Amino acid sequence: MKSNILIVEDHELTRFGLKTAFESCDFIDKIYEAESAEKGLEIATEQEINLIIMDLGLPGMNGIEATKRIKDLNKDTKIVILTSHNDEQEVLNSLKAGANAYCSKEINPKRLIQVVQSVLDGAAWFDPSISHIVLEAATKSQNIAQTKSAKDYGLTSRESQILKLITEGYSNIEIAKELFVSINTTKAHVASILQKLEVDDRLQAALKALKERLV
């Protein structure tokens, strides 16, 4: 099934380059564009958007606030932050707002397409340049002693194995291939993991697993 994406970027040349890159992708149906967060919100409300590529430094409302509002409207909409900013607070605020991926604008276009495919499939992705920020934030408030284990949450050995792959950014398809199981079996395990950890999505599961050292 093809997906509709929305590019929210105030620089016309960057927007054009992104649109051109994704026009050749066979998994993309329609590509929408917005030069501001306000316009992006309008499109996200009126159209069926599966994934949004969001800049942070937008005129008026910034990308973090736009991400939060869009997630409030529809938590299933995937959001990929694409920015030149690697400020620690902006990274953490973006993830807190619900972003599914955080990419530097220096990313190779082919790699960005791969990231978008993975996020559409349910994966979370962090640019290597900011991964240390995510890990430090996840463990900052954690005591050296582990307070809970995977067994405390009722996770099976297979679910623990899948949770580890989720923290490494594997998509459902990649997990299925890695473990030689069907995609439906993988989805069932992921759903069970989210329920047992009492989180809403894979990103929250990954952060909780890192923070509480479940993997």
Rank of each mutant, 00 (worst) to 15 (best):
T77M: 05
K110P: 08
K110Y: 15
A44Y: 02
K148N: 12
N86T: 13
M61L: 10
T14H: 10
I175Y: 06
T83G: 01
L95Y: 12
I52E: 02
E23K: 12
L155W: 07
N100P: 07
L51C: 11
T20H: 13
D152V: 05
T139D: 10
D152Q: 01
G122Y: 01
I43A: 04
V134C: 07
S192E: 07
I70M: 06
N4K: 02
V8I: 14
V190N: 05
I166Y: 02
E12D: 13
D29F: 11
L203N: 03
I49P: 00
L58N: 02
V115F: 03
I52R: 01
K151M: 09
L179R: 10
N184L: 13
M54C: 00
Q114G: 09
E90Y: 15
I81H: 00
Q161N: 14
A99R: 04
H85W: 13
K164W: 10
I175L: 08
N100R: 05
L194F: 01
C25G: 07
S84H: 11
E88I: 15
D152Y: 05
E178H: 12
P59T: 03
H189R: 09
L92E: 07
E174K: 14
Y32K: 08
K68T: 09
V215Y: 08
T14D: 14
A123L: 03
R213W: 03
I107F: 02
S36P: 04
E168Q: 15
A101I: 00
R69Y: 11
S36Q: 01
K151T: 14
K30S: 15
I53R: 03
K177D: 12
A191Q: 14
I173Q: 14
T20E: 15
I5Y: 06
V199Q: 06
I31A: 02
T186Q: 00
K187T: 11
T67G: 04
E136C: 10
D72K: 14
L92P: 05
T167L: 06
I28M: 06
V215H: 03
C103K: 00
I7D: 02
V80A: 00
G169Y: 00
A176S: 10
I64H: 01
L210S: 08
A66I: 02
N93W: 09
N100I: 07
M54R: 04
V215F: 09
A97Y: 00
N184M: 10
V119L: 00
L58E: 00
D72M: 13
L41P: 00
I113T: 08
N50W: 01
E9L: 05
E174L: 10
V116Y: 03
L165V: 05
G154M: 05
V80T: 07
L120V: 07
A209E: 01
M1I: 14
D10Y: 04
L95Q: 06
K110I: 15
L214N: 04
N108C: 11
F180M: 09
L56H: 04
P59E: 06
I7Q: 02
K96A: 15
M1G: 14
G63H: 04
L203R: 13
K177P: 02
I162A: 03
E65R: 10
E174W: 08
D76E: 15
A188D: 13
R15T: 10
T156R: 05
V8P: 07
N100D: 15
V199D: 03
Q204R: 10
F126L: 08
G122E: 05
E65Y: 08
K39R: 14
D76V: 04
S157I: 12
Q47T: 08
W125E: 11
K75E: 13
M1H: 12
A21W: 07
T77W: 06
F180A: 12
